[in-house]
Design a protein around this nucleic acid. Structure first.
Lengths: 154, 154
DNA sequence: TGCATTTTGTAGCTGTGGCTATATAATTCG
DNA sequence: CGAATTATATAGCCACAGCTACAAAATGCA
């Protein structure tokens, strides 16, 4: 029988572990839904820093999506208070958008560093970091920082 | 100016790097779309191994989603040849489904092991692994294996 | 200045993964 | 056996992230 309805002590403990796992899945789904926003803010910040402007077409090209896709996601960024657009003058980040971009950039760099330190080939490290970065919690980030620091000193 | 249209040698090199990054984003998006399938096959395999059956309701409860959501995703699994259902007898995996489940389980375990070895607290390691596992390439997996082996021998 | 090009936006489609509400089938138990 | 419970399926909704096709605005150059 599959636990979840009976009321024995063992089943109770099982139900707790089960709820904890369900919660982990929920967290992962939530992270998945912000992953796109992080990619966009991160890229926009980079374009602003490098070229002084972040155009919809450039964003689309660099992300490898069609421009209406970028346009719609940028609309979402605006709706969520992460960006503002000056028509035909490009996209700019709000304070919240800059904060998200900064966190995303830091996580990205650190994930790549850790992967490289673990012996992952550079190409794979860059590719995998693009996905992994969105799922790294604060705790894990701290552990990564300690590991990289120790790696450098050792 | 933002590169991408001019034809200077520097811009050409920039365009190549740009295309490479766009490709990395595409890969990450592809991984994102199989993440759900991996979660499901992994869980179904576990339920089959532990209880001999994997029911829609149990799957939904353990994933923390409503049962129609599980029902629809299971329909997708069937459509993609990963699972079959015997009505009112639960869900079973095809050969392809078992293969996916096995790879997912191996990656999951290894990601958790690596995170723990890096000093990530167990709770965070489990939580983050739930997202990270879907983005670990074969190359990275190999590096993780080497790292864990070395960790144990050292 | 005016036309061609480029950029941006919008409409409308697909597929995925959530949800609630409702219907139906199976199982269980008095 | 029949009624209550449980499991499953289906319908119909929403939001997101892709896409193509098309429209409109801005830019740039002859």
């Amino acid at each position: 029988m599959v636990p979840g309805h009976s009321r024995t002590p063992e089943a109770q403990a099982g139900a707790t572990a089960e709820a904890a796992r369900a919660h982990r899945f929920s967290q992962a789904r939530a992270a998945r839904s912000t992953a796109t926003l992080e990619d966009y803010t991160e890229l926009i910040a980079e374009l602003l820093a490098t070229y002084g402007e972040a155009r919809t077409a450039d964003i689309a090209r660099r992300l490898g999506v069609a421009h209406p896709t970028a346009s719609k996601t940028i609309a979402r960024l605006k709706r969520e208070g992460l960006a503002v657009a000056r028509p035909y003058r490009g996209i700019f980040l709000t304070e919240a958008g800059r904060a998200m971009a900064e966190r995303a950039r830091a996580r990205h760099r650190l994930v790549v560093e850790v992967l490289l330190a673990l012996g992952v080939p550079p190409e794979s490290a860059e590719a995998d970091a693009e996905g992994i970065e969105h799922y790294v919690s604060e705790e894990t980030l701290k552990a990564f920082e300690r590991f990289v620091r120790q790696q450098k000193s050792g």
